[in-house]
């Protein structure tokens, strides 16, 4: 006890300052500095969160104004031109109408299910054999570009028939279709906007497909449906 008193008497000038200095350093090192560093970190985090929030709010207001009915109509057009599934009868009907419009005679049609994937796209092949003058065959090939589906001519083979001006042409045509992959939307991605080219393309395609819908409804109207009650 006396020893402690002696030590205290000897160092009393510096004991308290040392203790408070050590306590100050501990408070500084363990409380103030870490808290200040995390304050800066959290400040950044708050800014990022607020920016993210404002981007999402802008996206939400953009989506609110999005014309869903126009988008559905455009999707319908896009799926008419590039169908989801292999629709052979519809493609055949379109080709037949183009052949008829070109004043050619359709002699034969063959279906080949190739289902090849060229660059991720699926297609099947229809082999058409048409007869008529060469300029009309040329017109038919030109009309394929403006068709309401995507047709690609694979080759052309022409033979004269019976020394007349008409030829017989065998034209294998690939018809493309594309399955819809599962659409995963990402809230961080902006709403995709159509470019001017795409809007023009859509406009052009909708004009072509409107003609197709009109002609298909005309065809269905002219097809006899039979008696409403077959037992009468």
């Amino acid at each position: 006890m006396d020893e402690l008193k002696n030590i205290y008497r000897q160092y009393k000038l510096i004991i308290w300052p040392v203790l408070s200095g050590v306590a100050s350093i501990i408070i500084l090192a363990l409380v103030i500095i870490p808290q200040f560093m995390s304050y800066l970190q959290v400040k950044d985090e708050i800014n990022k969160t607020q920016n993210h929030s404002s981007r999402l709010e802008a996206k939400a207001s953009e989506l609110e104004q999005f014309d869903e009915s126009a988008a559905k109509k455009n999707l319908q057009t896009a799926f008419t031109v590039l169908p989801e599934d292999q629709d052979v009868p519809k493609s055949l009907a379109i080709l037949q109408s183009l052949v008829k419009a070109s004043a050619l005679e359709l002699k034969n049609t063959n279906f080949i299910s190739t289902s090849k994937n060229s660059g991720g796209k699926s297609s099947f092949q229809l082999n058409l054999t048409v007869a008529g003058p060469i300029p009309l065959i040329r017109n038919f090939l030109l009309s394929l570009k403006g068709a309401p589906q995507i047709f690609q001519v694979e080759s052309i083979s022409i033979k004269f028939e019976n020394m007349g001006s008409a030829v017989e042409a065998t034209i294998p045509i690939s018809v493309f279709y594309q399955n819809v992959s599962k659409t995963v939307t990402n809230s961080d991605q902006p709403v995709p906007q159509l470019s001017n080219d795409e809007i023009e393309l859509l406009d052009k395609l909708s004009k072509i497909t409107v003609g197709l819908e009109a002609s298909s409804s005309a065809v269905s109207a002219s097809v006899p449906l039979g008696k409403s009650d077959p037992f009468q």
């Binding site: 999005f66 988008a71 559905k72 999707l75 896009a78 031109v81 594309q178 709403v191 393309l201 395609l205």
Partner: peptide
Amino acid sequence: EAAAVVLKQRLSQI
């Protein structure tokens, strides 16, 4: 959003 994404993808393929 899905409609917009699908339309954009489809038009790009076409």
